[in-house]
Design a binder for these strands. Structure first.
Lengths: 156, 156
DNA sequence: ATACAAGTTGAAGTCGACTTCAACGCAAGG
DNA sequence: CCTTGCGTTGAAGTCGACTTCAACTTGTAT
């Protein structure tokens, strides 16, 4: 598959694919002339990367988890500790969600006065922020829909 | 309270407080000479900001939600739609968590072969990333522990 | 053969949320 | 008086994950 095919199928822009390769997350090799040719497995690899990102791993962290071939070679304990982190984050976000809903519903003129809100605020502040794990779902504004992709983004 | 007191009590660095003020998220006024003096309510305001950030609002979004006095003045529907987004994110993260746990537990030599993993991968990739809402908990590497003071840590 | 779309590269730009820096102000204490 | 030390400012730097750009080279269709 050439770069634009991968881009179309996965929704990951070509520039990102090149970037990933430069960062060592992807291997393409077997170039046809100057052009990259990717093995079909690249789609799996991109899925892995997406999963890793969604879990809050940085690209560099993800990199050390992939063998050159793109297979998972991970330290299982690292993985499950990350899963725990994600779970913690989930709990914090649920608190946040409750906080938002309360703020939306509570008719109190000043939320600062409402004990419920104050508690949520404390939880959200000391909890949710204090030990925030990672940039979580950062830059992923659009793009990346590895599962399938009708039409991709225009790249450079 | 002067800036360093606020910093100590909240854990938010002075530079951040100045930054927030410059961005219009905080009001300090009543300066003593050249020095900022904050009303005690600033702590509440910082809590609100922390909550907003944890919910995935950008500082600018948070700004429009606070009246100059630091009170919530929010468009309630905006709030609850944000709460929904957070809920969606929570669901996605739960998928991610399951994916991580599976990867940690599954003995298959190649995860690419495991149907369970493939499914999780697809979900994580097309779901979790595709419509990620906001930078969520971005830069908050350390700092910000509004709920507790400089010493002694209790609960979480 | 020639045009043109698509690929390649390294370098630089972007974005958000801060941090760091240099240069300077000012009040209190030795 | 003069140092110490916190405070102030605007400007610039940082970080991660990309994107965009300029300048080319290639593959393919006509």
């Amino acid at each position: 598959m050439d770069i634009s095919q991968v881009a179309k199928q996965t929704g990951v822009p070509a520039s990102t694919l090149r970037y990933y390769e430069k960062q060592g997350l992807l291997v393409s090799l077997n170039r046809q002339g100057a052009r990259r040719m990717f093995a079909p497995s690249v789609i799996q690899q991109l899925g892995l990367i997406a999963l890793g990102q969604a879990a809050g791993f940085s690209l560099q962290e993800i990199k050390v988890m992939l063998t050159p071939g793109g297979r998972v070679k991970i330290d299982r304990s690292l993985l499950s500790s990350k899963a725990q982190e994600v779970d913690i984050l989930v709990k914090q976000l649920q608190v946040v969600s409750r906080g938002l809903r309360h703020a939306a519903a509570c008719p109190a003129p000043s939320h600062a006065e409402c004990p419920t809100f104050r508690r949520l605020l404390r939880d959200a502040a000391s909890g949710a922020l204090r030990q925030a794990p990672k940039p979580l779902v950062a830059g992923a504004k659009r793009a990346s829909s590895v599962g399938r992709a009708s039409r991709a983004r225009k790249d450079e």
